[in-house]
Simulated assay, not measured.
Amino acid sequence: MTLETSLSVYHAGCLGFNCVDTSQSAAFSAPAFGTFYRGTPASRRGMNPITKEFIQLPATVRPAFRPGDRLRRGVRRNPRT
């Protein structure tokens, strides 16, 4: 996706996350970039920072990203210093 456009990797990622409709089970795939899909993390224990009381945070649906092979190879070849 970033190879054919002038978008940075960050902005292409934001575009992909905005394209994922979390109410549906479909995934959005961009060839050579990666796949955006629905992630469903389990419920977990959190803490109220003001009262220090432990609370149960419910399971949610969040967009998630799995990078493609070409993106992984490109990142490995061009590490940030």
Rank of each mutant, 00 (worst) to 15 (best):
E53K: 15
S23Y: 08
T60D: 10
F17V: 01
L57H: 05
P31F: 03
R38C: 02
S25W: 08
R44M: 02
P49K: 15
M47Y: 12
R45P: 02
E53W: 14
G16H: 08
G16W: 03
S23D: 11
R77I: 11
A30Y: 14
S25G: 09
L57F: 04
F36G: 01
R70W: 08
A42I: 10
S43R: 05
P67S: 10
R80N: 10
F33R: 06
R76D: 06
G46Q: 10
R45W: 00
H11N: 13
P31S: 09
G39D: 09
A32D: 14
M47N: 06
M1F: 15
P63F: 00
I55D: 06
D21A: 01
S23P: 01
G16M: 05
P49H: 15
N48Y: 07
Y37N: 00
T2C: 09
M1C: 09
G13S: 01
F36A: 05
A32Y: 15
G13D: 07
V61K: 12
R66F: 08
R44G: 03
R72C: 04
I55R: 04
A32C: 12
Y37C: 00
F36H: 03
V9E: 11
K52G: 05
G39Q: 10
F65C: 00
T35I: 10
S43D: 13
T81F: 04
N48P: 02
